[in-house]
């Protein structure tokens, strides 16, 4: 059954509709409102359960933990700001922040323009557009673990696919993950491969919504394709571009699986990221206080970005 059947049914009774609205629109009667509130509460129970236990409470608990020292067996001790102090004193924090920013920056430089250009090209396709979209989105469907393990094999300096392919044209061999200079770049390449498809499709959708009249008007004014792209396409996309930029930043600042699986933070700490450090604090050292303190610091940074994101969503959708 298609949704349209239902839609046409009640719509037919337009006459009755107007009179019922007068009677039933938000119950004015206090008792009825209370009843409505309670019924709604019943419907909200699953959400309250899930969000209460697994979203709201952990936030409160995280705040509490960051001021405590606990081995989870004996009662926790309040330690004031000492967790924060320990975390901020850890020389690894600076390294991790630097690495995370490097990852985010490289991901921006490589992973940001690529989908945009690709989407512009794909938006002009009149044939086989489906095939292009299919191809570009294929890697996104794979579990990240599969991509990471596959690329790890490709990066093998002796037997890996990449050095073999580059060797054919006389390049390399490159150390990829084995060098402090190229390890992070290698992680970014993999994650660009794995994530590029989403951004491309989002741009593509935005591109197809650029009103054709704008192009027609520009063409009448004698603007060539490149000029139209520069003066119409890109400005029209800026809302989408800003959103994706922020989403990408928020995502990349939380990078974990790639360094965890591919390099374990090496070589020489070149790929230790903030999240990897938090993970080590909590699940390797058992220092939940320090892990929570660092999470809180990360949360502050990310919330700022998220706030910009939500604010701009509202702004761009209402403008």
């Amino acid at each position: 059954m298609s949704s349209l059947d239902v839609r046409t049914g009640p719509r037919g009774g337009a006459v009755r509709k107007t009179e019922t609205v007068a009677h039933h629109a938000p119950p004015r009667n206090a008792r009825r409102r209370l009843r409505n509130d309670l019924v709604a509460l019943a419907f909200l129970l699953p959400a309250l359960f899930c969000f209460g236990y697994f979203a709201w409470w952990p936030l409160v608990r995280g705040l509490e933990l960051s001021f405590q020292q606990t081995n989870l067996v004996d009662p926790a001790q309040w330690v004031g700001l000492s967790n924060f102090q320990h975390v901020l004193d850890d020389p690894m924090l600076a390294t991790a922040v630097k690495n995370t920013l490097l990852f985010a920056g490289l991901a921006l430089v490589i992973g940001f323009p690529l989908p945009l250009l690709l989407a512009v090209q794909m938006s002009t396709l009149r044939r086989l557009a489906g095939l292009y979209r299919y191809l570009v989105y294929l890697p996104v469907m794979l579990p990240p673990v599969v991509g990471v393990l596959l690329w790890q094999m490709f990066y093998d300096p002796d037997h890996g696919l990449f050095n073999k392919v580059l060797g054919l044209v006389g390049l390399g061999p490159y150390p990829w993950l084995q060098s402090t200079h190229s390890a992070m770049l290698s992680l970014v390449l993999e994650s660009t491969w794995a994530g590029m498809g989403s951004a491309t499709l989002i741009y593509l959708a935005a591109l197809t919504r650029v009103p054709p009249e704008l192009y027609e008007a520009a063409e009448t004014d004698g603007a060539r394709i490149w000029r139209r792209m520069w003066h119409i396409t890109l400005p029209q996309l800026r809302g989408t571009v800003l959103l994706l930029l922020l989403m990408q930043l928020i995502g990349t600042l939380q990078v974990f699986a790639e360094p965890y699986l591919m390099t374990d933070g090496g070589p020489e700490n070149a790929t230790v990221t903030v999240l990897l450090l938090i993970y080590r604090y909590a699940f390797i050292d058992g220092d939940y206080g320090a892990a929570s303190a660092m999470s809180l610091l990360l949360a502050a940074a990310l919330s700022l970005l998220s706030a910009v994101y939500l604010w701009s969503t509202r702004r761009w959708s209402s403008s």
Binding site: D90, P175, S179, G265, G266, P267, E268
Partner: peptide
């Protein structure tokens, strides 16, 4: 770990300097 990684991946690695750095980190 990073010190061992460094001497094995960097041609110009300086073991003594790397160890000094690691010692600083470990003291806390």
């Amino acid at each position: 770990d990073p010190v061992v990684q460094a001497v094995l991946t960097k041609k110009n690695a300086d073991p003594a300097a790397l160890l000094d750095k690691a010692a600083q980190q470990v003291s806390s």
